[in-house]
Amino acid sequence: MVTMKENKDGAPFLLNKEDYELISDIAEAIVPSGDNPDEEPGSREVGTINYIDSVLLDAEDAEMKMLRDVLSAIRSETRRQGAVDFRELSAEKKHLLLNGLFDRGKTKDAYIFLRSLCLEGFYSDYHDPDYNGVTAWKLLEFGGPRISELDKDWSFLRIYSDSKEKV
């Protein structure tokens, strides 16, 4: 079970509990960890869901509608497959479900938006403020001049600005 990161009021910044858990499961399906998560983390380990929760605070109305629509489509399709929860599905069925969203004209751009959020929350080198493990850039050996020692400013995310307040 994913542990929900809490803001100072004890809840996600924007998402409700159900959406938080569903998007977290989707992010894990899109960017899974390896056999040894300590060495090959995925979205669960670095906290992709918390990136998404924070960044959606600045989302436009049209983007939030896309998100609601695609989550609704995922829940419907999950039920149609005989499961109660997306996480109950096998990895293969999860992929088939997500690919099916891409194949349908009306859900394609909403699915791409959701996928982009999941990718941003990992391959940007995002990690939760209290995570000290391997992150994407180190995993990919993405480095070199102006990259390896780059001090990234994450303060545009509430989870980072709030964590500084707590300290």
Binding site: A29, I30, V31, P32, G34, E40, G42, A91, H95, L98, N99, F102, I112, R115
Partner: peptide, 8 residues
């Protein structure tokens, strides 16, 4: 769009 183990 690539996802899952294939993507990683």
């Amino acid at each position: 769009p690539m996802i899952g183990k294939e993507l990683t």
